[in-house]
Design a protein around this nucleic acid. Sequence first.
DNA 1: CTGAAAGCGCTTACAG
DNA 2: CTGAAAGCGCTTACAG
Lengths: 343, 343
Amino acid sequence: MDHKINSSRSGAKKKATMQDVATLAGVAPMTVSNCYRVPDKVHPQTLARVLEAAAKLGYTRNRIAGNLASGRSQVVGVLVPSLENSNFIGMIQGLEDRLHQLDHQLMLAVTPTADRELDSIRTFIERRIDGVVLTDVQHSRDTVDLLRNARLPTVETWSLKGPFIDMGVGFSLYDAAFDMTNLMIEAGYRRIGFAGFTPASTERFLERQRGFEDALRRANLRHDVHAYTEQSEGFAGGRITLNALLREEPELDGVFCGTDILAAGMIFECMRRGWRVPGRIGIAGYGNYQIASEITPKLTTVATPGYEMGVAAAEMLVGRLVGAAPAPVIRDVGYRLISGASF
Amino acid sequence: MDHKINSSRSGAKKKATMQDVATLAGVAPMTVSNCYRVPDKVHPQTLARVLEAAAKLGYTRNRIAGNLASGRSQVVGVLVPSLENSNFIGMIQGLEDRLHQLDHQLMLAVTPTADRELDSIRTFIERRIDGVVLTDVQHSRDTVDLLRNARLPTVETWSLKGPFIDMGVGFSLYDAAFDMTNLMIEAGYRRIGFAGFTPASTERFLERQRGFEDALRRANLRHDVHAYTEQSEGFAGGRITLNALLREEPELDGVFCGTDILAAGMIFECMRRGWRVPGRIGIAGYGNYQIASEITPKLTTVATPGYEMGVAAAEMLVGRLVGAAPAPVIRDVGYRLISGASF
DNA sequence: CTGAAAGCGCTTACAG
DNA sequence: CTGAAAGCGCTTACAG
């Protein structure tokens, strides 16, 4: 036998193949294959014999070869614009967990720009991934075309609206804000303000703000107390917006903050003023960032369902691959209100 | 031609192959292959003709087939115990960035337990990854054996000490703490305490504490002012340890906190007391968490080089694969002191 | 610079 | 429950 091909790892024993296992077990290679793919359909004694032979040889199946023959890679690609955002991390975690259970693997690409997204998708397709998970629904024309032409099962996340290339999963920012605001109203708050960032995430903030306003409107309460600050202000934005809100509504008794960073910053500011939270003022957050549970009082906040979205995306993709009944193409995974002590 | 094999995607056009491109371009399949692998060695005119044919057919190479033929997958696996820890995220980011530049892909597994780690490595090997990056140097006997027997290029991270299965990359916690403490000493601080968590991360904290103590010892300063708290206390740990340190050393003028969470909590406590930071007291952090730059004053802290570690791991792995000169097996990526305004 | 031949290690649809 | 034959789409070492 000629081992030259193995030259780069000249010291390595050649890996055992299915053929080797078959020979040792006294069966055909296909039977070995059956042992791994459909063990139920193999006679228990045969199965035992084969597995023993495999163990003796230290055999590990080569799924690359299997992929080529079957046309399925059991790999799903996920693209996120950044790893800084804990929402995306949660989604990756959900994907990984569920995919692992479903015997699929996760290939990750970080794609801060449209070019890089396109590039990574192209590479993923060359690697014959079975499906792809995209962040958000804004993608270049080229990306959309590429995905469509390849007929690659695709899930877009963080939106319920689309337009979707294929499938979508998300939740309603509006509903989340609406519910949270109602919770504050039910708790007795009557003069509630909204604090948000500007202008970066305008679209996403607007949806929250509409939910906020509609809840107040329905309760016949004042719904036009808003304040905005730059994202770059960090915690200081909490002080800035609190001051602004108080100027507009001196009787302010509650604030719905568009993110936990603002909420935390506002709590720090209240601490500085000697205001009790709650008591003097109630504060709601959004995002369930790490700080939400570290701060005192813990924030009552909205958990964005990154993890759940990842799980759903994994299920939608694998469901499609195994050819189950055509599942719904858009999934609403909802959200959770995390109950803290900040109002 | 029989298309039945394609049954699960019956509507799909069959994908073009290298053979198809070759036929259209009037060359041999191998020449098409050459166009992709070694374009420099192909006559420019031939190259152009082939690429044109490929474009016309919407051809995308099938790297799965290439992998099988070449024995190289150009995929690197990374295993992290959790995605909650921003240090690991940084490492993944570094890996992904560098790997992308080197035309390799990243497969990710989250492995909170030793069993899951072993399981994922097994799957990775079945997928014939070219190398693997592990978190830390504590791995089960089975994992070590599996990796050794497979002769899979392996990099273990976050340690300089090993013992390593193969290669290792890390930095010195001791040096980082030593340098930071010296910085405080040079800044004029004379009664510096150390605040840490207990008992979770004992080993890693001890290394920091030794660096801290040696720096003070060298300057003939008191080096036995320590306080510990539970990790679960979050920011409150800053208050707890500050109080404890003050009981031991009423003249305390500085604190080196084992993590930014403690440092931030301590700043909040100082805020509450009306103490200026710095001025009344100087505070150093560790970890360069997100909060380090969000808080006022910004923390002077140690940046753990997760990103750099990922980059280094990518280079070590790919370097090994292309068979470059046997590179050093252990790499110290150092650390950076982030200069804030907290002392 | 170009290419013929063999082979990478599996899985497929099916018959027995 | 078992297996013969063909084929998945590339890359290899080499000769010309």
